[in-house]
Amino acid sequence: MKFAFAVAATASLLLVPTGGAFATESCPGNPDALGTSREVAIDPATLPRIGFMQYKEMVELQPKEVILTFDDGPLPKTTPAVLEALRKECVKATFFIVGRMAKAYPNVLREVAAEGHSIGTHSVTHPLIFPKQSLEKGKKEIDDGFAIVNAILAQDGRQAAPWFRFPGLGRTAAFEKHLDQIGVVSMSADFPVDDWLRHTPDQVYKTALARLEANGKGMFLLHDIQPATVAMLPRLLRTLKERGYKVVHMVPLGTPGAEVARAETRTRVPAMPKQPVSDTVSPGMMPSLAEPVQPAPLTPPPAPSAADQTPGPGGQLPARLNPLPPHNVVGGDLMPLRRDEMPFSVFWPSQIVNDLRAPTMR
């Protein structure tokens, strides 16, 4: 029943009709564009968890194929520049959206979706250590993140794909079970580029290439809120083209022209060459394939209700993942956060921290 629902639901999550891969010769103003070589549709029933950094399965990629993903936006000063770099190369990517950022900058989120990029979610507030959330609080972070994003995308007749990336890649078996119950894929990655460590654009660029070359293919984890990523992205895309790499775009199941993704299995963690500077990766950001840490105590999640397993009109997601007033909305605006509640503030640009400390969200 759950699998049948997952397929039915994702069929209604098309962001834009794309008609398959993008021909580079048709890329406006750039006949030598990197382009998007093919699209793969993600079926939650067969690929419920993706990314070799944490899981044993990944979308099957051919040698020199890459998937680009961006976390933590949208942000007006950086996300549009990322979109421009992708647009110039006719490249499609996936953006994992923080609900609080979407609420603050809804038009930037709508622009990302209008460009044809896939939209996943990344919680409401991006708790720094997600496994420390209680089960109910963590489920609210997940569910309300979808609610906020979907309420914005619904203005253009769109809906987020049923994909979720844990903040900081912090997972537990209980939270993964919740995603299974609501038909949502847990999206990890294959390797990060360490752009949250305040590296220079050149350092981020070298880290990205070193890890890609060491693995030969895979899914990048980047951040569209980081100025270093914005600065190095055009160079990285050009280098991918020069070295013969091809970009694969993940899309929701049912997208016209997309092939259904097959699973590739691996039991080892991808190669992570040493960073070009002395910084070390923060705890929790480089998890292994070991079993996830279990916070205690945890209460068993409730069994899915009939409403949760019954698709709505057009095969929509369950009601609790459709546009609903988020639990922390007051007077149409999100409640201000205390500094200790800031999502990932240690690594976020100061503009974000200042914006999120404002009395209300814009």
Rank of each mutant, 00 (worst) to 15 (best):
V204E: 07
V204I: 08
V204C: 06
Y205V: 02
Y205N: 06
K206L: 14
T207C: 09
A208V: 02
A208R: 02
A210G: 10
R211E: 07
L212D: 02
L212I: 04
L212P: 01
E213R: 15
A214L: 06
A214V: 06
N215R: 04
N215V: 01
N215H: 03
G216R: 07
K217H: 13
M219H: 13
M219E: 15
L221N: 14
L222T: 15
H223V: 01
D224L: 00
I225M: 09
I225D: 05
Q226A: 11
Q226Y: 01
Q226I: 04
Q226E: 09
P227T: 09
A228R: 01
A228N: 12
A228K: 04
A228T: 07
T229M: 02
T229H: 02
V230E: 02
V230W: 01
A231F: 08
M232Q: 15
L233N: 12
R235D: 13
R235F: 06
L236Y: 04
L237Q: 11
L237I: 06
R238S: 15
R238K: 15
T239D: 14
T239K: 14
K241Y: 06
E242N: 10
E242D: 09
E242H: 05
G244I: 00
G244W: 03
Y245D: 04
K246E: 13
K246Q: 12
K246T: 07
K246P: 10
V247M: 07
V248G: 01
H249I: 03
H249A: 10
M250P: 12
V251T: 09
V251A: 08
V251S: 08
P252E: 03
L253K: 10
G254V: 04
G254N: 04
T255C: 07
P256L: 03
G257R: 08
G257I: 05
A258C: 05
E259M: 11
E259L: 10
E259P: 02
E259Q: 13
E259Y: 07
E259H: 08
E259T: 13
V260Y: 10
A261V: 09
R262H: 14
R262G: 11
A263T: 10
A263F: 09
A263N: 11
E264I: 08
E264L: 13
T265P: 01
T265S: 11
R266S: 11
R266C: 06
R266D: 13
T267L: 13
T267K: 12
M272D: 11
P273S: 01
P273I: 09
P273K: 01
P273C: 07
Q275L: 14
P276K: 09
V277G: 15
V277S: 15
V277D: 15
S278L: 12
S278T: 09
